[in-house]
Amino acid sequence: MEISPSALRALSSILEERTGQRLNEGRQWRVELALRPILKLHDIDSCETLAVRLTEPGSESLRDETVDALLNNETYFFRDTDAFSTLPQIIEAIAAHRENTKKLKIWSAGCSTGQEIYSLAMQFREDRRRWEGWTLDLLGTDISRKAIARGQEAVYSQFEIQRGLPAKHMLQWFEQRGERWHAHDDLRRMVHFRRQNILEAPPPGMFDLILCRNVLLYFPAANRSKALDWMSRVLAPDGALMLGAGETVLGYCDRFEILPGARSLYRLAPPEKHQLAIGA
């Protein structure tokens, strides 16, 4: 079934208004496919009708569902093995400056269903003795209510659990109940989740490490800048930002600079490098 240009425009603008994302050409064909379950569930005959319904009063929750369905929530455990193998070193370097407080605050922005932040939690627990006496504050945020609820629940399908997760970790950290894999409570307790839009004020506090991976690529340039700018304001002066493998800050935000020798990692640039501050 083809989706009409006017319905597509209406749905795109709802998505953009809510999330700051723009449906690029490549994603348009998926719209109809992504919305099919909603049409079926609410007995709506077409995307056109859905677009009209969304303009009616009282359509809040239908809007939420529609936006959720249009978001790409693709994720997996230890996504990008190289990135995860450099993290312990980076975390050690930051922790070296935290001996007095013994506290680390880590934020996964755009955490989807939780695999990224739970991967990090497992990594910390692998090294249990090292982190004894430390307070590890792991936060996952996402704009999708559904994704956040799933992260909190920490129950994964067979398909999800084996994407990226070593079998040993499956055995150690999850319990199989039927076809579903439930995270153990002590893993779940290490992480908390909240709904948040990365284009709006960030969660409270300063973070030592921010992961924002495979999120910015869906945004137009101005919104990449906006999100990065917010993150630069809550990153500790000696902290690090990690983006996805194909993403960069370059050209979007001059408050960050490349962390030498590390892939996809950035640190705060000294203020004299903030060209915009001088030019503005």
Partner: peptide, 11 residues
């Protein structure tokens, strides 16, 4: 699927 096999090969 491909991603699963790829990720296990990386592991």
């Amino acid at each position: 699927d491909r991603e699963t096999l790829q990720s296990k090969l990386q592991i």
